[in-house]
Design a protein around this nucleic acid. Sequence first.
DNA 1: TTGTAAGCGTTATCAT
DNA 2: ATGATAACGCTTACAA
Lengths: 335, 335
Amino acid sequence: MPVTIHDVAKHAGVAVGTVSRYLNGYTLREKNREKVEDAIEELGFKENIMARGLKRNRSMTVAVVAPDFSSFVAAMTPVIEQELEKQRYSLITCNYQGDKEKLRKKLVFLKERFVDGIVLFPSNLADASIDLVQSWIDAETPVVLLDHLIPGIHTDAVTVDNSNASFRAVERLILENHANIAIIDGPEDSYVSQERLKGYCAAMETYNLPIRENWIQRGAFTRTGGYHAVKALRESSNRPSAVYVANYEMTIGAILALHEMHVRIPEELSFIGFDHFEAIDVVEPPLTVVELPIERMGQLAAEFLLKRLRGDYEDFPVITKLNTKITIRSSIQSL
Amino acid sequence: MPVTIHDVAKHAGVAVGTVSRYLNGYTLREKNREKVEDAIEELGFKENIMARGLKRNRSMTVAVVAPDFSSFVAAMTPVIEQELEKQRYSLITCNYQGDKEKLRKKLVFLKERFVDGIVLFPSNLADASIDLVQSWIDAETPVVLLDHLIPGIHTDAVTVDNSNASFRAVERLILENHANIAIIDGPEDSYVSQERLKGYCAAMETYNLPIRENWIQRGAFTRTGGYHAVKALRESSNRPSAVYVANYEMTIGAILALHEMHVRIPEELSFIGFDHFEAIDVVEPPLTVVELPIERMGQLAAEFLLKRLRGDYEDFPVITKLNTKITIRSSIQSL
DNA sequence: TTGTAAGCGTTATCAT
DNA sequence: ATGATAACGCTTACAA
């Protein structure tokens, strides 16, 4: 029933090899090329991706592997899909639920499926699968890291200048004459956290402002983390006049807590949050936030993956560090 | 390099066919079964999914096809993935960006990829691809519809009792003594819209309340739609005392508009929204909302798909209609 | 129940 | 540049 290259070859009066070569971009004699093209057209030939895969050990499939399906990942995935589709790759999505063992299983599963490349959103615990990830890279199966790096893994990565993002956020507060500025940061062992804290400290130091110990709160990058961190901050003896919350989930949690405590923003507390997703729009007052270049990140990740898939390893590996932007709304009061 | 069933066969001292049959669940002589199992274990054999696919025209892949990557879809996808993974299926995600032509292309693309089944989130315009969808079903490639039905397509579907959801939401308002109740609904040509409006009307009629023409606002199921609908409602001569917003995106838009106009909820306007996603939590005051059973929907869709993939068409097609639940928070004032 | 062998639709090698 | 043909790893008649 389905049309094969044999049918095409017969119809065009050439050998199967010729058709195959045409399909793979080799140049044929002008006359033959036309005949083959006509035959393909007339017969409505579609290549059988599995037969091709069997021979070449390629599946024309790429996977996005993420610890969860957060807004961040959900926003990036369609961008990646769109880029890949242009080159006829399809996209498998996997989330490993922040579970080390699940990540291993996923990676094994994907290998069995002959996935041609991976876009990996590492989490701290991805470090544990470093050997597996490395083995993919060694086998020339391209892996692009998104958001984080994994220490010890040398491959393409698309990241954000987190330290600089924090610096500018905090500087913004300082320029509005705030001096008592707190940060709600992620866990200590996260590289992203460390970078974001670094920027905070650098800004404070640059402007000769003291850093109080209790102004550095840890929120585990979770909504409840942000919630509790705000509570702790408000209950302390030396309340800050401004707070910078270093990721999206915690921003939501922090706002929740502030609403609950009837703390007015920005009159009682100036606020700068992180990431711009739908939830942010609806917050009263409109929040000033640091925004990640989601689109660009997804695009670049796909671009590098495709480049490596083409076999172009000329400049490998490339670590891209993108800039964030700050969107000014009305959550900061000038003192 | 990779170990094949030939290697296993040789190692076990049986024929390849025997190994293949073992792999496919046929029963072998006890002795042979053990030998084969041992050989597989020792050699670390993994079946080549592409060779298998080539023979059987199956890819062990399923696709989720959606018009966008809304929170609704994003919340459902991981649930589906998880169910499918148990049976060693992997999941391709596609969004057709609400574009008729893109949907067609996607469906063709997926067919070329030998996708074994589809979970389709239809949008109104999916009707245009009715022939393609039907051809999948005819070819015994299972298609499960999620959320909407497509008129004229007979296949499994997992939906929600939208009319009843609206009825109960509006009834809730009526029981708090509201009589002037508006609805912000989706586009007229959407089946879901129609159902949700039907529930609103039924509730109003059941309690003998008049329906003013301008109380039925259309918000196109978009955020801006909800935003403008609220503005229109507030600017009208006979303002409602309560409003029911019939989907998530419009709920966000409506809240945005109300914040902007400094309308106090519930003092000046009682409010009942739709769908519970992250954004909702952060709204002040906490919103009473109709919630869809996301998890259950995803599970059921996957379940039916897997059942059909197993070849079990005994009860085909099954249209499941799930109930919603209302989560009471503080956006409704008792009059 | 098991072995044998012919494909599935490609790609790749080797002549020509 | 092209043709013929042997793989790729598996399933499935058919025979035994």
